[in-house]
Design a protein around this nucleic acid. Sequence first.
DNA 1: GTAGGGTTAAGG
DNA 2: CCTTAACCCTAC
Length: 605
Amino acid sequence: MEPRIATLLGDSPLERPAADALWLPPPPPSSAGRILSSPLLRTTHSPSQQPAPQRQKPSAPIGDVLNTVKPFSGRLSDLLLDPSPQQLPKRKRDDDAAAKPLPTAPENSLLMLPKPHQQPKKNTKRQRIPPLLQGLHQVPPQAQSRLFPPITSETDTFGRDMGDTIPLRPAGGSKSAKEPSNEASTGSTPMNTPARTPEEAREKEGAKLASGPIGDKENRSGTNAAPGKTKELKKRNKWSDEETKDLLVGVSKFGIGSWKKILQCPDYTFHHRSAVDLKDRFRTCCPGEGLKPRKSKRKSNAHEVTSPDATSLPTPTSTSGSDDPTAPETPNPTSTSRKNRGDSHRKGPAELREMGIHSAFTRTVHRRERRTFTEQDDENLLKGFNKYGSAWHLIRGDVELGFSARQPTDLRDRFRIRYPERFAKAGYKLKAKDERMLKEKENAENQDARSIQPPTNSATTSIRDPAIPLPTPLQDYADLASEQDGDPSRSPITLSRNILEWVDAHPSQMSGANLPPLSTFVTDPSSSIHYTTDGLHINPSLTLDLPMALLNSTVLPSTSQRDFHGTADDASSHVETWRSAASHVKSAENYVTACAGIWFAECGA
DNA sequence: GTAGGGTTAAGG
DNA sequence: CCTTAACCCTAC
């Protein structure tokens, strides 16, 4: 832990500039026990590494901040919104006096910290809680312990950012140990056996793409995954001639489109390929053979004059022309090198003959031509759903809607994609992926609400980055109002079970009120509670205000689980009360945690 | 006929 | 190589 902290901070404690807001002074002896009980502080200021005289220097940033800060108004929003800019220069002066800055360090060394990796796009949802709050959310587990929460998450990210080359993926699994070489693998290897469940399929896919091939690919390529990426950089799993031959022979035997059959046929050997991989490879080798050749991607960019070869790039017409399977061995002489590179995988008749393929590829399995749903289709689909409900065959039968060429299941599938919430509300099951997305979304907001995100960099808990704007109370929460579906049979209450679960899990923080498990309400089908499918929806303004006066048992219902025998309306009313109470507890928690930071510093000053 | 999981096509 | 969506299969 200790060396990692030092690594994480970029230097040894002695050389590290004190601009790091974590740099707290040692507490007076009376409070030493409390303060040093924090593992973070202990490791950051190990007495064995820090000479006593230097430790006694009253150069703590937090102490300075506290000395210059104006009297605390008692409102958390003041803490959040007042960056107290005059404190920053003073901090720097003290920094200079206290420690020798790194020669290359910029003024604000916080900027030198490794950037956390970029989450995939779908996860880069804008944070709903300002960074300061994220760091302050965590209430010390025991009030008397006053521990900083340990840094337990994102460590891998930092580790990688700091050049930690230790493989993060658990080494060893029987699977990877079992597949040191692909040369010996056959079509009947575990990798080529079909998965029985979606989870297995996912695992299998993940193993194919990541853990499984790693050793093999590294052995082949001799390169390591680049550090600083969320996902380990996947090596390109290049197609060998043997694989390609097996693929083409397989296509000639089973037909175009029977990718899974080919994949599973023991006669052929593929190195961690999926059916999609086979299809993609075939599309590359035999463009136009039964599969649509790829469209030209350069449309709007084609006119850009900055590209030196822009004038020689093939037009979409020439692209499709060169993809013409009737002329596979006569590449367009005007093609660029890029174009030639794309064509380099193309297998001509001669090569096919060499592989023993003498007849043209056929398609043995018939599949309806793929037809994209238009906006009009979607509109009609919604109309049909409003008219017939989920009787998809009736929707198809309605000639006015124009779905005669579709299967009922097509309509259902499209409806699931296009109107997922209505689909779910109608009682249907969403695809696992959609459900995962909903869950992730729920979890993301759940983390905001439960405040279980430990600070990944405690420095950010003291000084809010003024470049990151705080949201206005209702800014960016348009979805709060967009959840209404206009269904009059539902209560307008929009409630997330997560906050209720949080309250369930923290009954002691509800001022001793008698807390019924709130699942009492949520599991009551007669309560007409409307749960949004995307998780937690708390009016964020409630978390920015500090309704301390409301934080007492008088606002909390005294109803116990056994006592509750109300009607659905009563239940709604109670849940609303609980929801409000939970929000207030949340606000109070933030407030107390913010104060805790000051208490810590005061103890150390 | 429907629900739900699986497979494939195609664009990114 | 990944993701998405259209389409397919099959148990019920």
